[in-house]
Amino acid sequence: MTEGAEHAEHVHKDREAAKIGMWLFLFTEMLLFGGLFILYSAYRSRYPGDFHRGGQQLDYVIGVVNTLILLTSSLTMATSLTALAQRQRRRAVFLLTTTVLLGAVFLVNKSFEWSVKFHHGIYPSSPELLARPPGEILFFGLYFTMTGLHGLHVVAGIAVLSVMTFLVARGRITAADPVKLVNAGLYWHLIDVIWIFLLPLFYLAA
């Protein structure tokens, strides 16, 4: 135990490199979603009417509620770092747990939204959907792909933040060495940024 602690003191850590690595990963995420945004724009310009009608079939209230949930989760994520820096470990754990719970509420809302669509016979390659005009098929294809991919990122974010919460609670992430939590926070905020773009694309531009 003492040996381990002694050893840990000599481990070389480069926070700048860790942060650069995280940002490089985030760039690949931005370009992944960016490619899908480009696809969306290309098809929207080809089928403006169909996309318009597609957007009208989505419940914008649930989209806005989920936006507020994610924005608030970003606030609790960011403030958990302040709490950690001020050595208020309990508060940091509370804020991180809130972030994870808000992420879970987001997913519950999303699952309700999807199941209503499924109930109406709208899911990828469904007979009901395939009978519609080509633009609407594309709209819902992009809707399920992009919000689904985003949802997977929320699941990953929840998993990562749960581990981070545990590490903070156990005193393994501290004010002196917060880089793991900082990087996990960057990931969570990026998920928020992507949703900020998904909201107008699917729910408001109708």
Partner: peptide
């Protein structure tokens, strides 16, 4: 909005 998140939260 995205800029605010990037600039402050990130």
């Amino acid at each position: 909005k995205a800029g605010l998140v990037l600039y402050f939260f990130m």
